[in-house]
């Protein structure tokens, strides 16, 4: 780890200025991803601007029944918040199925969104990686990649986005709020992580130096009827192989609204919009769920080692939808 300077920002404007002054500066949230990568030499900031104690924490209920979650709110506080649990249960579950109690106690919402991929080659400085060193190549494509992407990848990078929280946010049409020295802005989560293409190093649509200030979850009738299921190599304390955030609102025996987002399968949380369209207005039957799950994976292009993710994702979508439908029936 290279030597670096450290500042604790007292105000948002201080943080923005401190980062703008130094091209090598980075914001420090809980540090659970950044410090890890600094120890590996993957990240080499010259200055850390600690934003964790900025007054950007807390969860507010918005007039539309949605929520505004401050960027420095810890993952634990998000998951424990009664309104999050009531209005967006899949979000609470997603957050709680990530990392461990200790990590969630310091990890922030902003940092969680910006955590880097868990592709092993990304963290191995001796191997080429387009995400770490643009243009150097991708060691994963010809290497070991059972847990890489099956959707939305490119010949330049096949890594997945590791966040569980972001999968639930994708399902709920969340919007990321940020601030730069030029003012405030918003990016919907659907555009927050751009397609990989030939720039796997460009991971977000945030302008340079932007500080994430909050995540806005629009209110909706479907969000309280949601679940998150995560499949992984061990029962806890492991990243997803495949995960599903889904919500289902059935009225008069017909699907009124449905949300499906997948984790562990793509470079970003993968919203399965066309699969949702299959179900909307249809009856919530096992056959319908099967068609919907098939549609969600219809564009999948598995790599040599990870074909199993396709049936796994399909099965998981069907299982979660069936579970939600059963709950709807008893409502």
């Amino acid at each position: 780890m290279r030597e670096f300077a450290y500042r604790r920002a007292a105000r948002v404007s201080d943080a923005l200025t401190a980062v703008a002054e130094d091209a090598g500066a980075r914001y420090l949230g809980g540090g659970t991803n950044l410090v890890d990568l600094m120890k590996r030499g993957v990240e080499e900031p010259t200055r850390l601007v600690d934003v964790r104690r900025l007054p950007l924490d807390g969860v507010q209920v918005a007039p539309d029944g949605g929520l505004v979650v401050g960027a420095t709110t810890t993952n634990s506080d998000v998951a424990a918040h009664p309104e999050v649990r009531r209005r967006f249960p899949a979000l609470a579950l997603a957050v709680l199925s990530g990392a461990s109690g200790q990590l969630r106690n310091v990890a922030t919402v902003g940092g969680n969104l910006l955590q880097r991929t868990r592709c092993g080659y990304f963290a191995d400085l001796s191997r080429p990686c387009n995400k770490r060193v643009p243009g150097s190549g991708c060691a994963a494509i010809g290497g070991v990649h059972p847990n890489h992407a099956v959707l939305g990848h490119s010949e330049h990078c096949v890594a997945t986005h590791p966040s569980d929280m972001a999968v639930a946010l994708a399902a709920f049409d969340a919007v990321v709020r940020y601030q730069t020295l030029d003012g405030a802005g918003e990016i919907p989560l659907s555009r927050f992580y751009p397609p990989v293409g030939d720039r796997p190093d460009r991971e977000t649509a945030l302008p340079p130096g932007a500080l994430i200030t909050a995540v806005v979850l629009p209110g909706s009738a479907v969000s309280p009827r949601s679940r998150y299921r995560k499949v992984r190599e061990r029962a806890s304390y492991a990243f997803a192989i495949v995960s599903v955030a889904a919500a289902l609102d059935v009225r008069d025996g017909v699907v009124h609204d449905v949300r499906i987002a997948l984790g562990g399968v793509a470079s970003r949380p993968w919203r399965a919009g066309s699969a949702e369209a299959v179900l909307r207005g249809a009856r919530p039957t096992a056959d319908g769920f099967r068609t919907c799950a098939d549609e969600a994976l219809s564009d999948a292009k598995p790599l040599p080692d990870n074909g199993y993710k396709v049936p796994l994702a399909r099965n998981l979508i069907r299982a979660v939808l069936a579970e939600l439908a059963a709950t709807e029936e008893n409502r």
């Binding site: 604790r8 410090v35 600690d50 990590l103 106690n105 310091v106």
Partner: peptide, 19 residues
Amino acid sequence: CTVLCDDRRVLSCLTLAVA
């Protein structure tokens, strides 16, 4: 490396001392 920081359990290996 778990310790309690302001009564919350945290991992001291990923917590910078300055922070």
